[in-house]
């Protein structure tokens, strides 16, 4: 983490040297760095996830900004789920970098679901940088209605 910030500082010094837009676009960003350091609100190395139990299925969502569907994979076995993804951050061709807060990622996150899911009935959608999985519960894990005789 510390090395990352010193890297950023170096970028800053480089910007200083370039000087072109210095003091305009970057004004106030030094201050921002301080805030960012304190709050530690930088996206982690693994995506954050939410899990909701919808009765018949689980809904799992994961924040994966900037990762296309070809760079994501999901593996499921029983109640074990693994999300793998990569993204490379580089300057678009012909552009020079002024500031680089977003980082390249290469992550695997494994999760244990509260119950087994039917891996044949999984739906995955990518919505504006959020991966949403609908995971149908395996038969024994579904809520059962008990009739009172």
């Amino acid at each position: 983490m510390i090395t990352r910030w010193s890297d950023l500082d170096r970028v800053f010094n480089a910007i200083d040297a370039m000087g072109l837009l210095r003091g305009r676009l970057e004004s106030g960003l030094d201050e921002f760095d301080q805030v960012l350091k304190k709050s530690g609100s930088v996206t982690g190395t693994t995506p954050r996830t939410n899990l909701f139990d919808m009765g018949e299925y689980f809904e799992l969502s994961a924040e994966v900004p900037g990762i296309g569907k070809d760079d994501l994979s999901v593996k499921i076995q029983g109640n074990y789920l693994e999300i793998t993804g990569t993204r490379a951050i580089e300057a678009p061709a012909g552009y020079t970098t002024h500031r680089n807060e977003r980082s390249s990622l290469n992550f695997t996150r494994s999760l244990t679901l509260p119950a087994d899911v039917d891996s044949a009935k999984v739906e995955a959608r990518l919505q504006h940088g959020v991966l949403v999985l609908s995971l149908a519960k395996a038969e024994p894990a579904k809520p059962q209605e008990i009739s009172i005789s």
Binding site: F32, P65, G129
Partner: peptide
């Protein structure tokens, strides 16, 4: 505060802002 990357070429300044969801 969303994370941004700032790029520049001769014609424009380009911002990449991370806004998942």
């Amino acid at each position: 505060i969303p994370l941004v990357d700032i790029y520049e070429n001769n014609d424009e300044i380009l911002l990449h802002v991370e806004l998942p969801g």
